[in-house]
């Protein structure tokens, strides 16, 4: 990707990614850094932006990037939504620890989407199960099953820490 392409992609999608990162991280400086991180991933795989709906892809990459950052945070949530987000971020995906599928391929639709991203889309962003299913190329029942499993592991984790 040359500089001109990069500028065009940023002009088109940068604000979306920046907003998404700020929405999840609630910190302007960290959101800026996450925005750069997302585009660094794109620089390594520029063909991803050839996808029909690159906005959806970037939204999910940004979500995953932010979840990864939130996982390392050591602070108390100030709102219910933030608590939910931090809980999701701290969970491992229910598809298992040994899963080695590539993140970007998953997002690209060849493999199941990260359950954590699905959880954020549904529980935090308010997407319906049908919308999450469309975004992740899964069936509605598949999404429901994965979210239920994530919820169970979260509850088990909370019980263990209680």
């Amino acid at each position: 990707m040359d500089t001109r392409n990069l500028e065009e992609w940023y002009r088109r999608y940068g604000p979306l990614v920046q907003r998404r990162c700020f929405q999840l991280l609630r910190d302007d400086e960290e959101a800026q850094d996450a925005l750069q991180e997302v585009f660094m991933q794109i620089l390594r795989r520029p063909e991803l932006l050839e996808a029909e709906f690159a906005s959806s892809l970037l939204y999910k990459i940004a979500t995953n990037t932010c979840l990864n950052r939130l996982r390392g945070r050591n602070r108390r949530a100030e709102t219910r939504d933030e608590a939910l987000l931090l809980n999701i971020a701290s969970e491992e995906d229910v598809e298992g620890r040994s899963a080695s599928a590539r993140l970007l391929d998953r997002i690209f639709g060849r493999h199941p989407e990260s359950t954590r991203v699905m959880a954020v889309l549904h529980f935090v962003d308010g997407l319906t199960l049908e919308e999450v299913a469309r975004e992740t190329s899964l069936s509605v029942s598949g999404v429901r099953k994965r979210l239920r499993a994530l919820k169970q592991t979260a509850e088990a984790g909370e019980a263990a820490h209680a």
Binding site: E8, Y10, R11, G14, P15, R19, F39, M40
Partner: peptide
């Protein structure tokens, strides 16, 4: 918001920052 973000960090500045980060 789109306009404000691009005003705050214009594309050429963002591209330069990313190149610098690389």
């Amino acid at each position: 918001s789109n306009a404000a973000i691009l005003r705050k960090t214009p594309p050429e500045i963002f591209a330069a920052r990313l190149a610098s980060r690389q």
